[in-house]
Amino acid sequence: MHPIRTTIIAAAATVVAALAVPPEAAAHELSPLGANWYAAAPYLMPESNNPPDPVAVMSATGQKAFQLAFILAPSGGGCTPTWDGTSPVASDTTAAATIGRIRDAGGDVSVSVGGYGGTKLGQTCADPGSTAAAYQQVIDTYGLRAIDFDLEEPEYENDAAINNELGAAQILQRDNPGLFVSVTMPGTQAGTGWFGTQLLDKARNLGFTPDDYSIMPFDGGFSGASSQTDALEQFHALLMSHLDWDSATAYAHEGFSGMNGKSDAGEYFTQSDFQTVLSYATGHGLSRFTFWSVNRDRACGSSTDNGVCSNVPQNDWDFTRFTVQFANTTR
């Protein structure tokens, strides 16, 4: 198994002094979670898509960490971090309050940068250093110990933007010892596409190795769990060939980021599909198992909005329970 990196967490007063955490966030002591929980943190949008109460989810499932999404460039342009392109991190209170409640309940968060929509900081910042400085503001503001780079279209196809993102990730990893860094990218039936292999090559040339590379095997003609585990096997081969890793090392840096229920492309992934992929992940020593999203982890009622419910029969938080199983298996 991939070694779980842990860090010693200072007292709240030290966190305030060293990281300049604003008062509303500083009042909440960081929970000493292992990397297994950051690697099993499902995505949750704290400021859109009818966010559920994360503490209620924690109480119902045993989940201890969430992947809060997404940090973007301002919708009007610039190189400062915002939530969803509209809410500046510098003046945020909504996400800070969510993080505080999660920490008060014994959990913690990672924050995801990028995603599918909006303009990414890698597209608007001038270079890796300025991109890293924008993300460092997020780390400092919320006292983060984990960050996810969700690199998707169109940024994914922009050479300069990907150079900025990967270079920033490397700088953050260097400047924040113990920071858990994951890189998430689109999945295809071949593992990942041409831009994904270019991303791996760029990271290798930089000498940058994240804790995990995850693919998203959905929205690409997938049908159930077998197509997803096949894609993970293909991606495993790409990790070996592009990074010169042996099989065990490749599995130990590989992750799954699924979509629960109905995907944007009309694919369906049920609880049984998640169970199959979970068994594959734990059986092969994968280092991450997550999904999009907790906002969707509930049955649809009068609305079938795919952003706020799964469009498959389920009880609330059925899919979150699989990430809990992964964390408990890999601790």
Rank of each mutant, 00 (worst) to 15 (best):
D150W: 13
T131Q: 05
L151R: 01
A105T: 10
Q137F: 04
Y116M: 02
I99E: 00
G117F: 15
V109R: 00
V111Y: 04
V113M: 10
T94F: 10
Y135F: 14
G122Q: 02
V109C: 01
G122H: 02
K120C: 07
E152Q: 03
V113N: 07
D150R: 03
A126K: 09
V109I: 06
I147C: 00
D150Y: 14
V109T: 03
C125P: 11
L144I: 11
Q137K: 13
Y135G: 09
L144R: 06
F149H: 09
Q123F: 12
Y116R: 02
Q137D: 10
D140R: 09
G129F: 02
E153F: 13
E153L: 14
A96K: 07
Q136E: 06
F149M: 12
Q123V: 13
T131V: 04
Y156E: 08
A96R: 08
D150T: 11
L144P: 08
A95M: 07
I139V: 13
T94L: 06
A132Q: 14
V111Q: 03
L151P: 01
Y142R: 00
K120T: 13
E152P: 03
I147R: 00
D104R: 14
A133N: 10
Q136I: 04
A146G: 07
A97K: 11
P128S: 14
S130N: 07
A133V: 07
G107E: 09
T124E: 03
I102T: 01
V138R: 01
G143Y: 01
I139R: 05
Q137G: 10
Y116I: 05
D148N: 08
I102N: 00
A105Q: 10
G100S: 11
A146N: 04
G143F: 03
A133L: 10
T124P: 06
R145Y: 13
P128D: 15
S130G: 09
V111T: 04
N158R: 07
A95F: 06
V109F: 01
V109S: 01
R101D: 08
G118W: 12
I147Q: 00
E153T: 15
V109N: 00
Y142C: 01
L144A: 13
I147H: 00
E152C: 02
S130M: 04
G117L: 15
